[in-house]
Write a protein that binds this DNA or RNA. Structure first.
Lengths: 231, 231
DNA sequence: GTTTGCTTCCATCAAATGATGGAAAACATA
DNA sequence: TATGTTTTCCATCATTTGATGGAAGCAAAC
Protein backbone atom coordinates (compact mmCIF):
# COMPACT_ATOMS: atom_id res chain seq x y z
CA UNK A 1 0.00 0.00 0.00
CA UNK A 2 1.88 3.02 1.35
CA UNK A 3 5.11 2.56 -0.57
CA UNK A 4 6.87 5.77 0.55
CA UNK A 5 6.05 5.00 4.14
CA UNK A 6 7.43 1.47 4.02
CA UNK A 7 10.51 2.69 2.22
CA UNK A 8 11.15 5.28 4.91
CA UNK A 9 10.98 2.61 7.57
CA UNK A 10 13.67 0.53 5.89
CA UNK A 11 16.01 3.50 5.62
CA UNK A 12 18.69 2.83 8.25
CA UNK A 13 18.58 6.51 9.19
CA UNK A 14 14.85 6.41 9.84
CA UNK A 15 13.65 6.64 13.41
CA UNK A 16 12.12 3.19 13.22
CA UNK A 17 15.40 1.64 12.10
CA UNK A 18 17.43 3.59 14.66
CA UNK A 19 15.19 2.31 17.44
CA UNK A 20 15.54 -1.24 16.17
CA UNK A 21 19.32 -1.03 16.12
CA UNK A 22 19.54 0.32 19.65
CA UNK A 23 16.93 -2.17 20.88
CA UNK A 24 19.02 -4.99 19.45
CA UNK A 25 22.04 -3.86 21.42
CA UNK A 26 20.25 -3.26 24.71
CA UNK A 27 18.18 -6.45 24.56
CA UNK A 28 21.43 -8.25 23.88
CA UNK A 29 23.15 -6.75 26.89
CA UNK A 30 20.41 -7.13 29.47
CA UNK A 31 17.99 -9.69 28.07
CA UNK A 32 14.28 -9.12 27.54
CA UNK A 33 13.31 -8.62 31.17
CA UNK A 34 16.47 -6.70 32.03
CA UNK A 35 15.69 -4.16 29.33
CA UNK A 36 13.16 -1.35 29.79
CA UNK A 37 11.58 0.62 27.00
CA UNK A 38 12.87 3.71 28.75
CA UNK A 39 16.46 2.47 28.47
CA UNK A 40 16.08 2.06 24.73
CA UNK A 41 14.30 5.38 24.25
CA UNK A 42 16.91 7.22 26.29
CA UNK A 43 19.74 5.66 24.29
CA UNK A 44 18.11 6.75 21.04
CA UNK A 45 17.40 10.15 22.56
CA UNK A 46 13.63 10.08 22.17
CA UNK A 47 10.52 9.79 24.30
CA UNK A 48 9.04 6.39 25.13
CA UNK A 49 5.84 7.24 23.31
CA UNK A 50 7.78 7.69 20.09
CA UNK A 51 9.13 4.22 20.56
CA UNK A 52 5.64 2.82 21.11
CA UNK A 53 4.34 4.81 18.18
CA UNK A 54 6.74 3.02 15.81
CA UNK A 55 6.87 -0.46 17.26
CA UNK A 56 3.82 -1.04 19.42
CA UNK A 57 4.39 -2.93 22.62
CA UNK A 58 7.75 -4.06 24.00
CA UNK A 59 7.25 -7.64 22.91
CA UNK A 60 6.62 -6.61 19.31
CA UNK A 61 9.89 -4.70 19.26
CA UNK A 62 11.70 -7.70 20.70
CA UNK A 63 10.24 -9.97 18.05
CA UNK A 64 11.29 -7.51 15.37
CA UNK A 65 14.83 -7.69 16.76
CA UNK A 66 14.79 -11.48 16.53
CA UNK A 67 13.57 -11.42 12.94
CA UNK A 68 16.17 -8.82 12.02
CA UNK A 69 18.97 -10.88 13.53
CA UNK A 70 17.76 -14.01 11.80
CA UNK A 71 17.75 -12.22 8.47
CA UNK A 72 21.26 -10.89 8.93
CA UNK A 73 22.63 -14.17 10.19
CA UNK A 74 21.00 -16.13 7.38
CA UNK A 75 22.64 -13.87 4.80
CA UNK A 76 26.01 -14.21 6.49
CA UNK A 77 25.75 -17.99 6.43
CA UNK A 78 25.01 -17.91 2.72
CA UNK A 79 28.04 -15.69 2.14
CA UNK A 80 30.34 -18.00 4.09
CA UNK A 81 28.96 -21.05 2.33
CA UNK A 82 29.92 -19.47 -1.01
CA UNK A 83 33.49 -18.82 0.14
CA UNK A 84 34.19 -22.28 1.49
CA UNK A 85 32.35 -24.24 -1.15
CA UNK A 86 34.45 -27.02 -2.62
CA UNK A 87 37.35 -26.84 -0.16
CA UNK A 88 38.37 -29.82 1.98
CA UNK A 89 36.53 -30.20 5.29
CA UNK A 90 39.31 -29.02 7.58
CA UNK A 91 39.77 -25.80 5.63
CA UNK A 92 36.03 -25.26 5.31
CA UNK A 93 35.68 -25.41 9.08
CA UNK A 94 38.73 -23.25 9.75
CA UNK A 95 37.53 -20.50 7.45
CA UNK A 96 33.97 -20.75 8.69
CA UNK A 97 35.09 -20.51 12.32
CA UNK A 98 37.37 -17.55 11.62
CA UNK A 99 34.76 -15.70 9.61
CA UNK A 100 31.83 -16.33 11.90
CA UNK A 101 33.90 -15.48 14.98
CA UNK A 102 34.87 -12.12 13.48
CA UNK A 103 31.25 -11.52 12.52
CA UNK A 104 29.90 -12.22 16.01
CA UNK A 105 32.65 -10.26 17.73
CA UNK A 106 31.65 -7.31 15.57
CA UNK A 107 27.99 -7.76 16.53
CA UNK A 108 28.00 -9.43 19.94
CA UNK A 109 24.31 -8.67 20.41
CA UNK A 110 23.60 -11.47 17.98
CA UNK A 111 25.40 -14.06 20.08
CA UNK A 112 23.86 -12.65 23.22
CA UNK A 113 20.31 -12.77 21.95
CA UNK A 114 20.71 -16.22 20.46
CA UNK A 115 21.97 -17.59 23.77
CA UNK A 116 19.32 -15.75 25.77
CA UNK A 117 16.68 -17.40 23.68
CA UNK A 118 18.16 -20.84 24.17
CA UNK A 119 18.43 -20.50 27.91
CA UNK A 120 15.54 -18.43 29.18
CA UNK A 121 12.06 -19.84 29.41
CA UNK A 122 9.99 -18.30 26.72
CA UNK A 123 6.65 -18.78 25.11
CA UNK A 124 7.18 -16.88 21.87
CA UNK A 125 7.41 -18.84 18.65
CA UNK A 126 9.02 -16.20 16.48
CA UNK A 127 11.77 -18.46 15.56
CA UNK A 128 11.18 -20.96 12.84
CA UNK A 129 14.56 -20.25 11.31
CA UNK A 130 17.14 -21.56 13.76
CA UNK A 131 16.33 -25.21 13.00
CA UNK A 132 16.42 -24.33 9.32
CA UNK A 133 19.85 -22.68 9.61
CA UNK A 134 21.19 -25.59 11.61
CA UNK A 135 20.04 -28.08 9.01
CA UNK A 136 21.53 -25.94 6.24
CA UNK A 137 24.90 -25.85 7.94
CA UNK A 138 24.75 -29.58 8.55
CA UNK A 139 24.23 -30.11 4.85
CA UNK A 140 26.92 -27.58 3.94
CA UNK A 141 29.35 -29.43 6.21
CA UNK A 142 28.47 -32.76 4.67
CA UNK A 143 26.87 -34.04 7.87
CA UNK A 144 23.55 -34.71 6.17
CA UNK A 145 22.70 -35.73 2.68
CA UNK A 146 21.36 -33.05 0.38
CA UNK A 147 17.68 -33.46 -0.34
CA UNK A 148 17.85 -37.06 0.62
CA UNK A 149 14.52 -38.70 0.03
CA UNK A 150 14.05 -42.27 1.13
CA UNK A 151 10.52 -42.30 -0.19
CA UNK A 152 11.89 -42.61 -3.71
CA UNK A 153 13.24 -46.05 -3.00
CA UNK A 154 10.59 -47.02 -0.46
CA UNK A 155 7.31 -45.75 -1.89
CA UNK A 156 5.27 -47.64 0.68
CA UNK A 157 6.89 -46.24 3.80
CA UNK A 158 4.80 -44.04 6.04
CA UNK A 159 4.51 -40.50 4.76
CA UNK A 160 4.73 -39.10 8.26
CA UNK A 161 8.07 -40.66 9.03
CA UNK A 162 10.43 -37.76 9.54
CA UNK A 163 13.34 -39.64 8.04
CA UNK A 164 11.56 -39.72 4.72
CA UNK A 165 11.05 -35.99 4.40
CA UNK A 166 13.06 -34.31 1.65
CA UNK A 167 15.44 -32.29 3.78
CA UNK A 168 15.50 -34.48 6.86
CA UNK A 169 18.60 -33.96 8.99
CA UNK A 170 19.51 -36.63 11.54
CA UNK A 171 19.61 -35.54 15.22
CA UNK A 172 23.29 -36.27 15.60
CA UNK A 173 24.17 -33.99 12.69
CA UNK A 174 21.98 -31.24 14.14
CA UNK A 175 23.58 -31.55 17.56
CA UNK A 176 27.06 -31.47 16.10
CA UNK A 177 26.31 -28.24 14.30
CA UNK A 178 24.78 -26.76 17.44
CA UNK A 179 27.87 -27.74 19.42
CA UNK A 180 30.05 -25.82 16.98
CA UNK A 181 27.83 -22.75 16.73
CA UNK A 182 27.30 -22.51 20.47
CA UNK A 183 30.99 -22.84 21.19
CA UNK A 184 31.50 -19.69 19.14
CA UNK A 185 28.60 -17.82 20.73
CA UNK A 186 29.85 -18.59 24.23
CA UNK A 187 33.22 -16.97 23.80
CA UNK A 188 31.68 -13.84 22.32
CA UNK A 189 28.91 -13.48 24.89
CA UNK A 190 31.16 -14.48 27.73
CA UNK A 191 33.92 -12.05 26.86
CA UNK A 192 33.22 -9.79 29.82
CA UNK A 193 33.48 -12.77 32.10
CA UNK A 194 36.23 -14.81 30.48
CA UNK A 195 38.65 -12.15 29.35
CA UNK A 196 39.52 -10.99 32.88
CA UNK A 197 39.98 -14.66 33.77
CA UNK A 198 42.66 -15.13 31.15
CA UNK A 199 43.98 -11.61 31.48
CA UNK A 200 44.23 -10.79 27.78
CA UNK A 201 43.66 -7.63 25.79
CA UNK A 202 40.72 -7.71 23.41
CA UNK A 203 42.74 -8.46 20.27
CA UNK A 204 44.70 -11.19 21.97
CA UNK A 205 41.50 -12.66 23.34
CA UNK A 206 39.90 -12.81 19.89
CA UNK A 207 42.99 -14.46 18.47
CA UNK A 208 43.19 -17.00 21.29
CA UNK A 209 39.48 -17.78 20.96
CA UNK A 210 39.83 -18.49 17.26
CA UNK A 211 42.80 -20.76 17.85
CA UNK A 212 41.07 -22.58 20.66
CA UNK A 213 37.90 -23.10 18.67
CA UNK A 214 39.76 -24.44 15.68
CA UNK A 215 41.92 -26.66 17.85
CA UNK A 216 38.98 -28.14 19.78
CA UNK A 217 36.34 -28.40 17.07
CA UNK A 218 38.03 -29.41 13.83
CA UNK A 219 39.99 -32.64 14.52
CA UNK A 220 36.95 -34.77 15.38
CA UNK A 221 35.24 -34.06 12.09
CA UNK A 222 38.35 -34.38 9.94
CA UNK A 223 39.28 -37.63 11.64
CA UNK A 224 35.83 -39.14 11.07
CA UNK A 225 35.85 -38.09 7.44
CA UNK A 226 39.16 -39.87 7.00
CA UNK A 227 37.80 -43.02 8.56
CA UNK A 228 34.65 -42.95 6.45
CA UNK A 229 36.70 -42.52 3.26
CA UNK A 230 38.91 -45.47 4.09
CA UNK A 231 36.09 -47.95 4.65
CA UNK B 1 27.44 -17.55 68.29
CA UNK B 2 23.87 -18.82 67.98
CA UNK B 3 24.65 -22.43 67.18
CA UNK B 4 21.07 -23.76 67.20
CA UNK B 5 19.98 -20.97 64.90
CA UNK B 6 22.69 -21.55 62.35
CA UNK B 7 22.07 -25.26 62.47
CA UNK B 8 18.40 -24.73 61.75
CA UNK B 9 19.29 -22.64 58.69
CA UNK B 10 21.43 -25.42 57.25
CA UNK B 11 18.70 -28.01 57.71
CA UNK B 12 17.38 -28.63 54.18
CA UNK B 13 13.85 -28.70 55.60
CA UNK B 14 14.22 -25.25 57.14
CA UNK B 15 12.32 -22.39 55.58
CA UNK B 16 15.54 -20.61 54.69
CA UNK B 17 16.86 -23.64 52.83
CA UNK B 18 13.55 -24.27 51.10
CA UNK B 19 13.47 -20.70 49.83
CA UNK B 20 17.04 -21.02 48.57
CA UNK B 21 16.26 -24.21 46.66
CA UNK B 22 13.20 -22.73 44.97
CA UNK B 23 15.03 -19.48 44.26
CA UNK B 24 17.77 -21.44 42.55
CA UNK B 25 15.28 -23.08 40.24
CA UNK B 26 13.31 -19.94 39.39
CA UNK B 27 16.37 -17.73 38.89
CA UNK B 28 17.69 -20.46 36.61
CA UNK B 29 14.52 -20.52 34.54
CA UNK B 30 13.90 -16.81 34.13
CA UNK B 31 17.18 -15.11 34.99
CA UNK B 32 17.63 -12.43 37.63
CA UNK B 33 15.40 -9.78 36.08
CA UNK B 34 12.82 -12.26 34.84
CA UNK B 35 12.33 -13.54 38.37
CA UNK B 36 10.20 -11.71 40.95
CA UNK B 37 10.37 -12.29 44.67
CA UNK B 38 6.65 -12.98 44.49
CA UNK B 39 7.20 -15.85 42.07
CA UNK B 40 9.62 -17.48 44.48
CA UNK B 41 7.43 -16.88 47.52
CA UNK B 42 4.38 -18.26 45.78
CA UNK B 43 6.25 -21.38 44.70
CA UNK B 44 7.38 -21.98 48.27
CA UNK B 45 3.89 -21.20 49.49
CA UNK B 46 4.79 -18.31 51.74
CA UNK B 47 4.41 -14.54 51.89
CA UNK B 48 7.02 -12.26 50.34
CA UNK B 49 7.83 -10.76 53.71
CA UNK B 50 8.87 -14.18 54.99
CA UNK B 51 11.27 -14.38 52.09
CA UNK B 52 12.70 -10.95 52.85
CA UNK B 53 12.87 -11.83 56.52
CA UNK B 54 15.20 -14.74 55.80
CA UNK B 55 17.28 -13.43 52.94
CA UNK B 56 17.11 -9.65 52.92
CA UNK B 57 16.86 -8.06 49.51
CA UNK B 58 16.48 -9.88 46.20
CA UNK B 59 20.10 -9.40 45.26
CA UNK B 60 21.29 -11.01 48.51
CA UNK B 61 19.18 -14.07 47.77
CA UNK B 62 20.57 -14.25 44.25
CA UNK B 63 24.12 -14.06 45.55
CA UNK B 64 23.35 -16.82 48.03
CA UNK B 65 22.15 -18.94 45.12
CA UNK B 66 25.41 -18.34 43.27
CA UNK B 67 27.50 -19.26 46.29
CA UNK B 68 25.42 -22.38 46.87
CA UNK B 69 25.83 -23.49 43.27
CA UNK B 70 29.55 -22.85 43.37
CA UNK B 71 29.88 -24.94 46.49
CA UNK B 72 27.94 -27.84 45.03
CA UNK B 73 29.73 -27.69 41.70
CA UNK B 74 33.13 -27.48 43.37
CA UNK B 75 32.41 -30.62 45.36
CA UNK B 76 31.20 -32.44 42.24
CA UNK B 77 34.39 -31.56 40.40
CA UNK B 78 36.47 -32.95 43.27
CA UNK B 79 34.44 -36.17 43.20
CA UNK B 80 34.92 -36.59 39.46
CA UNK B 81 38.61 -35.82 39.71
CA UNK B 82 38.96 -38.69 42.20
CA UNK B 83 37.21 -41.14 39.90
CA UNK B 84 39.20 -40.36 36.77
CA UNK B 85 42.56 -39.89 38.43
CA UNK B 86 45.32 -41.89 36.76
CA UNK B 87 43.34 -42.98 33.71
CA UNK B 88 44.48 -42.15 30.18
CA UNK B 89 43.30 -38.77 28.82
CA UNK B 90 40.63 -40.09 26.46
CA UNK B 91 38.94 -42.10 29.19
CA UNK B 92 39.27 -39.28 31.70
CA UNK B 93 37.43 -36.95 29.37
CA UNK B 94 34.78 -39.51 28.44
CA UNK B 95 33.95 -40.25 32.06
CA UNK B 96 34.08 -36.60 33.04
CA UNK B 97 31.74 -35.63 30.21
CA UNK B 98 29.29 -38.45 31.01
CA UNK B 99 29.28 -37.71 34.72
CA UNK B 100 29.05 -33.95 34.49
CA UNK B 101 26.35 -34.17 31.82
CA UNK B 102 24.22 -36.38 34.06
CA UNK B 103 24.84 -34.03 36.96
CA UNK B 104 23.78 -30.93 35.05
CA UNK B 105 20.76 -32.63 33.49
CA UNK B 106 19.66 -33.49 37.02
CA UNK B 107 20.13 -29.88 38.13
CA UNK B 108 19.65 -27.76 35.01
CA UNK B 109 19.38 -24.60 37.11
CA UNK B 110 23.12 -24.80 37.57
CA UNK B 111 23.84 -24.69 33.85
CA UNK B 112 21.24 -21.99 33.40
CA UNK B 113 22.61 -19.72 36.07
CA UNK B 114 26.21 -20.23 34.98
CA UNK B 115 25.33 -19.25 31.42
CA UNK B 116 23.18 -16.33 32.53
CA UNK B 117 26.11 -14.97 34.46
CA UNK B 118 28.43 -15.30 31.48
CA UNK B 119 26.09 -13.55 29.10
CA UNK B 120 24.23 -10.86 30.98
CA UNK B 121 25.88 -7.62 31.94
CA UNK B 122 26.53 -7.70 35.62
CA UNK B 123 28.48 -5.80 38.19
CA UNK B 124 28.48 -8.27 41.04
CA UNK B 125 31.75 -9.85 42.08
CA UNK B 126 30.40 -12.81 44.00
CA UNK B 127 32.23 -15.14 41.83
CA UNK B 128 35.87 -15.67 42.55
CA UNK B 129 35.50 -19.41 42.10
CA UNK B 130 34.81 -19.94 38.41
CA UNK B 131 38.37 -18.98 37.40
CA UNK B 132 39.62 -21.19 40.20
CA UNK B 133 37.52 -24.16 39.03
CA UNK B 134 38.64 -23.65 35.46
CA UNK B 135 42.28 -23.63 36.45
CA UNK B 136 41.78 -26.75 38.57
CA UNK B 137 40.22 -28.62 35.68
CA UNK B 138 42.99 -27.48 33.37
CA UNK B 139 45.52 -28.95 35.78
CA UNK B 140 43.49 -32.10 36.24
CA UNK B 141 43.38 -32.55 32.47
CA UNK B 142 47.10 -32.03 32.18
CA UNK B 143 46.69 -28.75 30.29
CA UNK B 144 48.72 -26.80 32.83
CA UNK B 145 51.62 -27.75 35.00
CA UNK B 146 50.89 -28.39 38.65
CA UNK B 147 52.32 -25.71 40.92
CA UNK B 148 54.81 -24.72 38.31
CA UNK B 149 57.07 -22.03 39.66
CA UNK B 150 59.56 -20.41 37.35
CA UNK B 151 60.83 -18.20 40.15
CA UNK B 152 62.76 -21.15 41.55
CA UNK B 153 65.05 -21.28 38.56
CA UNK B 154 64.95 -17.56 37.84
CA UNK B 155 65.15 -15.82 41.20
CA UNK B 156 65.62 -12.40 39.63
CA UNK B 157 62.54 -12.43 37.40
CA UNK B 158 59.81 -9.96 38.18
CA UNK B 159 57.62 -11.09 41.06
CA UNK B 160 54.55 -9.62 39.45
CA UNK B 161 54.82 -11.58 36.25
CA UNK B 162 51.72 -13.75 36.14
CA UNK B 163 53.57 -16.61 34.50
CA UNK B 164 55.74 -16.94 37.56
CA UNK B 165 52.92 -17.33 40.03
CA UNK B 166 52.65 -20.79 41.61
CA UNK B 167 49.38 -21.90 40.04
CA UNK B 168 49.50 -19.89 36.86
CA UNK B 169 47.38 -21.38 34.08
CA UNK B 170 48.03 -20.24 30.52
CA UNK B 171 45.14 -18.56 28.66
CA UNK B 172 44.90 -21.26 26.02
CA UNK B 173 44.46 -23.96 28.65
CA UNK B 174 41.77 -21.89 30.37
CA UNK B 175 39.92 -21.31 27.12
CA UNK B 176 40.07 -24.98 26.22
CA UNK B 177 38.49 -25.93 29.52
CA UNK B 178 35.84 -23.26 29.11
CA UNK B 179 35.04 -24.55 25.63
CA UNK B 180 34.42 -28.02 27.05
CA UNK B 181 32.40 -26.90 30.06
CA UNK B 182 30.28 -24.49 28.06
CA UNK B 183 29.53 -27.08 25.43
CA UNK B 184 27.95 -29.19 28.15
CA UNK B 185 26.03 -26.30 29.70
CA UNK B 186 24.57 -25.31 26.35
CA UNK B 187 22.91 -28.61 25.66
CA UNK B 188 21.38 -28.72 29.14
CA UNK B 189 20.17 -25.13 29.15
CA UNK B 190 19.09 -25.28 25.56
CA UNK B 191 17.08 -28.47 25.92
CA UNK B 192 13.73 -26.71 25.60
CA UNK B 193 14.89 -25.16 22.38
CA UNK B 194 17.01 -27.92 20.85
CA UNK B 195 15.03 -31.01 21.71
CA UNK B 196 12.01 -30.08 19.58
CA UNK B 197 14.47 -29.28 16.78
CA UNK B 198 15.84 -32.81 16.77
CA UNK B 199 12.53 -34.37 17.74
CA UNK B 200 13.81 -36.72 20.44
CA UNK B 201 12.40 -37.90 23.75
CA UNK B 202 14.23 -36.72 26.84
CA UNK B 203 16.21 -39.92 27.39
CA UNK B 204 17.23 -40.13 23.74
CA UNK B 205 18.23 -36.49 23.79
CA UNK B 206 20.48 -36.97 26.81
CA UNK B 207 22.09 -39.99 25.19
CA UNK B 208 22.63 -38.18 21.89
CA UNK B 209 24.06 -35.14 23.69
CA UNK B 210 26.61 -37.27 25.52
CA UNK B 211 27.66 -38.99 22.32
CA UNK B 212 27.93 -35.73 20.45
CA UNK B 213 29.96 -34.07 23.20
CA UNK B 214 32.39 -36.95 23.40
CA UNK B 215 32.68 -37.16 19.64
CA UNK B 216 33.33 -33.45 19.18
CA UNK B 217 35.46 -32.68 22.20
CA UNK B 218 37.77 -35.60 22.87
CA UNK B 219 39.73 -36.26 19.64
CA UNK B 220 41.54 -32.92 19.58
CA UNK B 221 43.01 -33.39 23.04
CA UNK B 222 43.91 -37.05 22.57
CA UNK B 223 45.53 -36.30 19.23
CA UNK B 224 47.62 -33.48 20.66
CA UNK B 225 48.73 -35.63 23.57
CA UNK B 226 49.91 -38.29 21.13
CA UNK B 227 51.89 -35.73 19.15
CA UNK B 228 53.49 -34.29 22.28
CA UNK B 229 54.51 -37.74 23.51
CA UNK B 230 56.15 -38.59 20.21
CA UNK B 231 58.38 -35.55 20.08
C1' DG C 1 0.48 -19.14 82.99
C1' DT C 2 3.36 -15.84 81.63
C1' DT C 3 7.28 -14.27 79.37
C1' DT C 4 10.48 -14.25 75.65
C1' DG C 5 12.25 -14.73 71.14
C1' DC C 6 11.72 -16.30 66.69
C1' DT C 7 8.71 -16.81 62.59
C1' DT C 8 4.87 -15.77 59.60
C1' DC C 9 1.43 -13.03 57.47
C1' DC C 10 -1.49 -8.80 56.34
C1' DA C 11 -1.62 -4.20 54.88
C1' DT C 12 0.69 -0.85 52.77
C1' DC C 13 4.34 2.11 50.48
C1' DA C 14 7.29 4.06 46.97
C1' DA C 15 9.49 3.42 42.80
C1' DA C 16 9.74 1.48 38.32
C1' DT C 17 7.59 0.17 34.28
C1' DG C 18 4.61 -0.60 30.15
C1' DA C 19 1.38 1.87 27.92
C1' DT C 20 -1.88 5.66 26.08
C1' DG C 21 -4.44 10.16 24.86
C1' DG C 22 -3.96 14.37 23.17
C1' DA C 23 -1.55 18.59 22.24
C1' DA C 24 2.24 20.52 19.81
C1' DA C 25 5.58 20.33 16.22
C1' DA C 26 7.32 19.06 11.84
C1' DC C 27 6.50 17.98 7.29
C1' DA C 28 4.41 17.63 2.85
C1' DT C 29 1.31 19.19 -0.67
C1' DA C 30 -1.77 21.81 -3.11
C1' DT D 1 -0.41 30.32 2.87
C1' DA D 2 -3.74 26.92 4.01
C1' DT D 3 -4.62 22.04 4.72
C1' DG D 4 -3.94 17.50 5.88
C1' DT D 5 -0.70 13.96 7.45
C1' DT D 6 2.95 12.21 10.03
C1' DT D 7 5.89 12.42 13.88
C1' DT D 8 7.25 13.74 18.47
C1' DC D 9 6.65 14.92 23.16
C1' DC D 10 4.29 15.95 27.72
C1' DA D 11 1.28 14.45 31.21
C1' DT D 12 -0.79 10.79 33.13
C1' DC D 13 -2.52 5.82 34.22
C1' DA D 14 -2.68 1.25 35.94
C1' DT D 15 0.26 -2.57 37.18
C1' DT D 16 4.00 -4.69 38.81
C1' DT D 17 7.56 -5.06 41.87
C1' DG D 18 10.87 -4.67 45.76
C1' DA D 19 10.52 -3.66 50.29
C1' DT D 20 8.88 -2.67 55.26
C1' DG D 21 6.21 -2.04 59.80
C1' DG D 22 3.54 -4.08 62.84
C1' DA D 23 0.33 -7.42 64.49
C1' DA D 24 -0.53 -12.28 65.18
C1' DG D 25 1.12 -16.97 65.84
C1' DC D 26 3.94 -20.27 68.05
C1' DA D 27 7.21 -22.74 70.78
C1' DA D 28 10.46 -23.15 74.44
C1' DA D 29 11.97 -21.26 79.04
C1' DC D 30 10.87 -19.74 83.31
Amino acid sequence: MATPLEKAHKDPESMKARILAVACRIFGEYGFHGTTTRMIAQEVGIDISTLHYHWGEKKDLYEAVILDINKDLGQKLIDVEKIIHGLPLGERMAIAIDTMTDYFFARPEISNIMLFRYIAKTRDNVDLRVPEFTADIARSMGLAKKSFNLADSMPDSRVNSAANLPNYTPPRAMLEVLAVMNAIHNFISGENFFRPMVNLEREEYIKAVKETLKFVLIPAFVQREGETRQS
